[in-house]
Design a protein around this nucleic acid. Structure first.
Length: 467
DNA sequence: AAACAGTGCGCG
DNA sequence: AAAGCGCGCACTGTTT
């Protein structure tokens, strides 16, 4: 793919953005190295204990017999071969083999084998990831003064997003709370300061609405009284919006709406949601178990989920097929028309231009053509804000330091006495100046703020009300 | 010893 | 017709 910034404005964005990102790297984020070392020891002990437990199992005896001195507890390939003997059916299902035809041993596949040995293996993998990639990765890159300087680049991602390395600051754990705690509690504010994270609320959905101009999507992101994820939850689970609780909404958002926007299809959504009902024990607001509720609504099973076999009535698979159809051909039909037009135009020309003035060309499939512009422009909203914010901080001789950036959020280390001023200007840039500078932004942009206690950690951040 | 392909998993 | 977009990093197992 050829990467060319064409408009002058697009060039300037990358130019100034690069300078700001370099400054962010130079500032660095403070690391509690003592806690980091303590956590590394603690996780090491957890790993040792888990390995010992696994090695007491008869399955490990079997494993040893097979591989002798080459037997390795961390080898997914070896595990796959050992388990294949006892659970061959696990890998008979569609999509359970790797690209080279070997049995997959990812968490998703292994979660179907509900024996302690396998579940413990999954846990051990997580512990090893935590120790190697994150805790040790951070320690390795931390300088002698206790500051970490992640790098950020604008010249690599095909979407014109940024990337980060040494270490990657943009994939530090947050979704699994116990993992997040081990790591994020080591990222701390400098003395007398707060770590402040400012997020562009629903950035990609907002920017998507600016591309496709679907009136219903625009309404959803413009009217705080409306809630797309809640509405979709009600459709997916055949209930009223009052019956939707946080967990159910979260499931609809992350296992249907977002995947659909990225080009996923109903069959994979159906499987994932059905799994989530079981694993997360979903229920309605009044306490009714979700499976019981769906049964009452005429849905008693998932269905075969075979791509070439038509979905049968009374299955969740069939229901999700209908939900998907209504989603794209009724609710968001203007969005669908835009997708068709956008892709057809690309096929004719071989390139397209993003709303922020970048050309993207090369051999791309439909999903890439649909997604790249949205993903890139959403990040550029953040980058533009970041540049403005940085410039304001310099001009006003503020002591605030911007220390990181994660696609749609900014992390800053803010002296207590500057907190009010900082939040005020950041909010003004994001919600007022940004939409004023870019007329293609036709929906409100909202900032969300979280802050750590004084001298506290990234893990301890709590929402802050913006006035 | 170094490079490479394949796999898996963390984040938005 | 195919069946989720973008990244970085660690590890296994093989090849150079």
């Amino acid at each position: 793919m050829k990467v060319t910034a064409i408009t002058c404005e697009a060039y300037n964005l990358l130019h100034h953005g690069t300078l700001v990102l370099a400054d962010i790297s130079a500032n660095g984020i403070r690391i509690d190295t003592e806690l980091l070392r303590y956590n590394i020891d603690k996780v090491a002990r957890m790993i040792a204990r888990t390995e010992k437990e696994l090695k007491n199992s008869p399955i490990w005896q079997d494993w040893r017999k097979r591989y002798g001195s080459k037997a390795k507890l961390t080898s997914g390939h070896q595990l796959g071969c050992v388990l294949m003997e006892h659970y061959p059916d696990t890998w008979k299902e569609e999509g359970r083999l790797t690209a080279t035809g070997k049995p997959k041993t990812d968490e998703e596949t292994l979660s179907t084998i509900e024996i302690p040995f396998v579940q413990k293996y999954v846990y051990l993998s997580k512990l090893n990831k935590l120790r190697s990639t994150y805790l040790q990765g951070i320690l390795r890159e931390t300088d002698a003064n206790g500051f970490l300087h992640p790098m950020f680049g604008l010249g690599l991602a095909r979407t014109y997003r940024s990337q980060s390395d040494h270490p990657n600051f943009q994939n530090q754990p947050i979704r699994i709370p116990w993992m997040a705690k081990f790591i994020r509690s080591c990222f701390v504010a400098r003395p007398g300061r707060h770590l402040v994270e400012i997020d562009l609320k629903g950035a990609e959905v907002c920017v998507s609405a600016c591309y496709n101009r679907d009136p219903k999507l625009i309404a959803y992101v413009s009217n705080p009284a409306l809630d797309m994820h809640r509405d979709m939850a009600a459709e997916i689970f055949k209930c009223t919006i009052d019956q939707v609780n946080k967990d159910v909404r979260h499931t609809a958002k992350n296992l249907f709406v977002f995947p659909q926007f990225y080009g996923d299809w109903y069959l994979s959504c159906a499987k994932n949601i059905w799994d989530a009902i079981r694993k997360r024990k979903l229920h309605l607001n009044d306490g009714t178990d979700m499976f019981t509720h769906l049964k009452k609504k005429g849905i008693s099973r998932l269905g075969a989920c075979k791509p070439k076999t038509p979905a049968l009535p009374g299955t969740f698979e069939k229901h999700m097929q209908d939900v998907e159809h209504a989603f794209w051909y009724d609710r968001f039909k203007v969005y669908t028309e835009w997708k068709e037009r956008w892709f057809a135009e690309y096929q004719k020309k071989g390139w397209f231009q993003t709303l922020t003035g970048f050309i993207i060309q090369g051999f791309l499939n439909k999903k890439e053509v649909i997604n790249y512009g949205i993903q890139g422009s959403a990040f550029h909203c953040l980058l533009w804000s970041l540049i403005k914010l940085h410039s304001y901080i310099q001009r006003h001789n503020m002591k605030t330091l911007i220390v990181g950036q994660i696609h749609d959020s900014i992390l800053a280390d803010v002296p207590a006495e500057e907190l009010h001023q900082f939040l005020d200007i950041a909010n003004r840039i994001i919600t007022k100046q940004l939409p004023a500078a870019w007329p293609w932004i036709i929906v409100p942009i909202v900032a969300e703020v979280e802050a750590s206690p004084l001298g506290g950690s990234w893990f301890d951040k709590k929402p802050v009300e913006l006035k």
